[in-house]
């Protein structure tokens, strides 16, 4: 269930680990499987504080990550209302 919140297109990932370094709540880690390129794509940790800030989605250079905000699970959203409109909400 936890893994449904973030989807990684594994054959697109190049293993730069920028998403893991940049995650503000440290919710990502390398997975156990190797992809076609021989790198380990990221995945969510078993216990994580993911607040759907979508930084990993926005910062991934290979556009491989998609974050699906889980509407059933109500977690307090820290800091910002993150709609990608450049700081403004329509």
């Amino acid at each position: 269930m936890v893994c449904l919140m973030i989807e990684v297109r594994e054959d697109w990932c190049k293993g730069c680990n920028i998403c893991i370094d940049r995650c503000p709540v440290d919710a990502l880690e390398e997975s156990d499987i190797l992809n076609r390129r021989g790198v380990r794509p990221p995945k969510l940790k078993e216990k994580n504080d993911c607040n759907f800030c979508r930084l990993c989605e926005l910062i991934c250079p290979d556009l491989a990550i998609t974050v699906f905000p889980d509407e059933k699970e109500k977690k307090p959203v820290k800091k910002t209302l993150l709609t990608p409109v450049g700081g403004k909400i329509k």
Partner: peptide, 25 residues
């Protein structure tokens, strides 16, 4: 055309993605 030819850790893909978001908006 995907995935890109860019090296690991290159910033060009990020700029492309920001352009996509801007065009989408």
């Amino acid at each position: 055309m995907w995935p890109t030819i860019f090296c690991n850790g290159c910033g060009h893909g990020v700029v492309l993605e920001y352009t996509f978001w801007a065009l989408e908006e």
